[in-house]
């Protein structure tokens, strides 16, 4: 059933795109560009670079649309392209995405106390932007893009447990950032 409903949503537009219909391509772009741009923005944390990636991702999606077989929703197919392109872009910038002591895979110290009473979306969002690349990517993929640690490991070329510990560290750091006095909204 899932499969069917995926097809129903956009398959008219997608079919028209496959035949190179410019207006259909624009429709898809309108539908997905904002969400995809935010995915890219969270990983890269740079407006201009995120735009480049978005452009590259859409071009590649339109070019490879024939290979989209409607097994998943078009959105998740496109998102995979965007995530991969974003990670490649940030890799170019930095040689290692997760350099922080890979060897210490052991458990991270206990969770920092999560006082959610003062959380606000804007505050959390800005704090995420303050995280170093390696932390931010893992944390964003896990929290916002709905990837699990196995998927994050796959896409970043690290192990599942590294992803887990990386996430714990990232979260700890995030909570610290939010506690900084100058960060109070």
């Amino acid at each position: 059933m899932e499969k069917l409903s995926y097809q129903d949503v956009n398959h008219h537009v997608i079919d028209r795109c496959k035949s190179g219909d410019n207006r259909a391509q624009y429709e898809l772009y309108k539908l997905y560009s904002k969400a995809m741009f935010n995915v890219s923005m969270r990983i890269i944390n740079d407006y201009a670079e995120a735009e480049d990636v978005l452009q590259e991702a859409f071009l590649s999606a339109f070019k490879n649309l024939q290979s989209y077989k409607a097994e998943a929703s078009f959105g998740s197919w496109l998102k995979k392209i965007v995530v991969n392109a974003s990670i490649n872009a940030i890799r170019k910038r930095r040689s290692e995405l997760v350099p922080m002591d890979e060897r210490v895979v052991g458990e991270v110290a206990d969770e920092a106390y999560e006082d959610d009473s003062e959380w606000q979306v804007e505050k959390v969002r800005r704090a995420i932007q303050q995280l170093p690349d390696g932390y931010r990517v893992v944390l964003s993929l896990y929290l916002l893009e709905g990837y699990d640690h196995a998927e994050i490991g796959e896409v970043l070329g690290i192990t599942e447990s590294t992803s887990k510990s990386q996430y714990s560290r990232a979260k700890k750091k995030l909570l610290e950032i939010m506690k900084e006095p100058q960060f109070a909204v």
């Binding site: 624009y26 772009y29 560009s33 904002k34 935010n38 407006y47 735009e51 979306v121």
Partner: peptide
């Protein structure tokens, strides 16, 4: 959390 939006001209570039 989706607060950003690409410039409108970006579609032009893609096109």
């Amino acid at each position: 959390f989706d607060v950003f939006e690409p410039r409108t001209e970006l579609w032009q570039n893609i096109c």
